[in-house]
């Protein structure tokens, strides 16, 4: 039982996961039983009743209403059991416990950002405490996305015109993948994120600590971390290839032609402006799709990114 579970299903990271898995296991074994039955009987008939004469004459038979009713009623009962069971778990998946902490989730092309009541923000990484119900209040800035954490067995579409809600309570610490599961364009398959589940005390520390480089970390290294964490790498390459946005390789000091025909040299102010108000000046030949990071990135984060971009020479 446990080996089939681990073959089919990811680790059980939330309180609801074991319930969902139990029902999955129930349907799995019932299905396997009937499937083996159907296949075995079919094969047996094919061998036992192989055609023996040229004409293949068969005998008449009596229709059996009792048989028909049997194989209508038994599956119906089984299906109703499955329905009720699934319905109960679904209700549990949808009723948010009263003592939940609330985190605002925003989906946009092509990254997730998270806002805490305490003022902390995160991009691509959702940090939560273990053993604490977390309510996610979700919305989208552009098209429909869908927030999926396989280890928690939760998924909910994220819509542009209303809030949707889901919740979970993590049962173990560690890092778990977040996927976008509603097709949203070019970067859909890289709209990944991580749920980082921390022990409660570490989480409290994380919430209080400001951002900025860690101990012994240079601004450049910090910027490199921000580059990945904030999903800049989804659209900007480091190897000179053209992606959704211009490459960061050799960007600093480069002369770029803007969409309005003017030419500028990339400096600290231009990078800062492009992060905070990306529509102001755009390099010609690229679609205006860069989202603003106003309110998401702090000054120290931007400083780190600038230091990192400066280091990326040709």
């Amino acid at each position: 039982m446990d080996t089939t579970r681990s073959l089919f299903l990811p680790p059980q990271g939330s309180t609801v996961a074991s319930d969902v898995d139990a029902l999955f296991g129930f349907i799995f074994w019932i299905s396997l039983f009937f499937f083996v039955g159907v296949t075995a009987i079919t094969v047996y008939f094919c061998i036992k009743y192989k055609r023996k004469s040229e004409t293949g004459q068969t005998t008449p038979y009596v229709e059996s209403l009792a048989l028909e009713i049997t194989w209508i009623v038994i599956p119906t009962i089984l299906l109703m059991v499955i329905f009720v069971w699934g319905f109960q778990d679904f209700v549990r998946l949808h009723i948010v416990p009263a003592n939940s902490m609330e985190i605002k989730v925003t989906g946009q092309k092509w990254f997730w950002s998270f806002n805490y009541d305490e003022g902390a923000t995160g991009v691509g990484e959702l940090v939560v405490p273990v053993g604490q119900p977390v309510k996610l209040l979700m919305s989208s800035k552009d098209v429909i996305h869908s927030f999926f954490v396989p280890a928690f067995r939760i998924k909910m579409d994220v819509l542009p015109n209303r809030y949707t809600i889901t919740w979970f309570e993590a049962t173990m610490t560690g890092e778990f993948e977040i996927y976008c599961t509603e097709f949203c364009g070019k970067g859909h398959s890289e709209m990944w994120g991580t749920v980082k589940v921390l022990p409660k005390d570490e989480f409290a520390k994380w919430l209080e600590a400001g951002s900025g480089p860690g101990e012994g970390e240079s601004m450049k290294e910090y910027g490199a971390r921000m580059f990945v964490k904030n999903a800049c790498n989804t659209c900007h390459s480091l190897d000179g290839s053209k992606n959704v946005g211009p490459t960061f390789q050799g960007l600093f000091g480069r002369r770029e032609v803007m969409s309005d025909g003017t030419t500028i040299t990339v400096d600290e102010n231009y990078i800062r402006e492009s992060i905070l108000s990306p529509m102001a000046k755009q390099v010609v030949g690229y679609d205006p799709v860069m989202p603003t990071y106003q309110g998401i990135l702090k000054d120290v984060d931007i400083d780190g990114l600038i230091a990192y971009i400066k280091s990326l020479e040709n």
């Binding site: 609801v16 319930d19 969902v20 029902l23 999955f24 349907i27 799995f28 299905s31 009937f34 499937f35 159907v38 296949t39 079919t42 094919c46 299906l79 499955i82 329905f83 069971w85 699934g86 319905f87 109960q88 778990d89 679904f90 549990r92 998946l93 869908s146 999926f148 396989p150 067995r153 939760i154 998924k155 599961t181 509603e182």
Partner: peptide
């Protein structure tokens, strides 16, 4: 006969997907 076997598997997995709580996990995978 291929139909009989393969369609049965399709049918059983359809039950899995029709189940509310499991579909939350399996939807769009």
């Amino acid at each position: 006969l291929s139909f009989l076997i393969l369609f049965s598997i399709g049918g059983f997995t359809g039950i899995v997907l029709g189940t509310l709580s499991i579909d939350v996990h399996l939807h769009d995978t």
